[in-house]
Design a binder for these strands. Structure first.
Lengths: 110, 110
DNA sequence: CCCATATTCAACCAAACGGTTGACGATTGC
DNA sequence: GCAATCGTCAACCGTTTGGTTGAATATGGG
């Protein structure tokens, strides 16, 4: 929703929320299913999801009684570009990034 | 110092601290000079600098009675790569990033 | 030596954060 | 219709955050 750097970085500063984002890379998920692997209450996860949604990192759509959570990678772009503007003073980590993608997702991913 | 994702993202989540990093892009600075443009106490800025240093985003070196602050863009790399790993699921992030660099820093920058 | 400069420390404060619990409002299915 | 499921709300709690102020600790210069 808001998607300014403050809320995006603050949202990313919590390991639970980053784990949630990683889970949503795989597929869209219901709130209950997101909460399942964590050892904390459903209400706590619900709050984390609200924070992620406010940062624009996910969207939530209610179908029936199930609320589906979907990753929105676009929200990371502004923050990512902001960060890269610092890294480039070291002559670019594009190489490191591409190597990471290759290693992480296989030669066909890029 | 610590440089894990938690502390790096938390450090970046504050606009004062991001402004400080931008200032340090230009040049190394003394604590007093960093504090100058801000409408808050020197002690507050000193705390912000400690947080940035703990995240590994800057280093501080004391020469005489002046403590010099220096940007450490390397600390952003891990966090940046983490973020890019999400963006790539849209398959255009690299292009957008390269276009940004070109636009921002000229054809020779990459 | 003394004073000014540079920076941090310590105590304090209000507000935000991350979690809990229990009650509540929708929705679904038997 | 009724019970179970899905998810949020509200109140509460302890800790962290971001700021203040005033005192303290170096260090440098005349």
């Amino acid at each position: 929703m808001k998607q300014d750097l403050d809320t995006v970085f603050a949202a990313l500063a919590d390991p639970t929320r980053r784990a949630i984002l990683s889970m949503l890379l795989e597929d869209d998920m219901a709130v209950t299913d997101v909460a399942d692997p964590f050892e904390m209450s459903l209400a706590a996860i619900s709050k984390h999801l609200t924070i992620l949604a406010n940062a624009g990192l996910i969207t939530q759509e209610k179908r029936g009684r199930v609320k589906w959570c979907k990753l929105e990678p676009d929200a990371l772009r502004e923050a990512s570009i902001w960060m890269q503007s610092f890294g480039q003073f070291e002559a670019i980590n594009l190489d490191a990034f591409e190597a990471f993608l290759e290693r992480e997702f296989g030669p066909d991913a890029g």
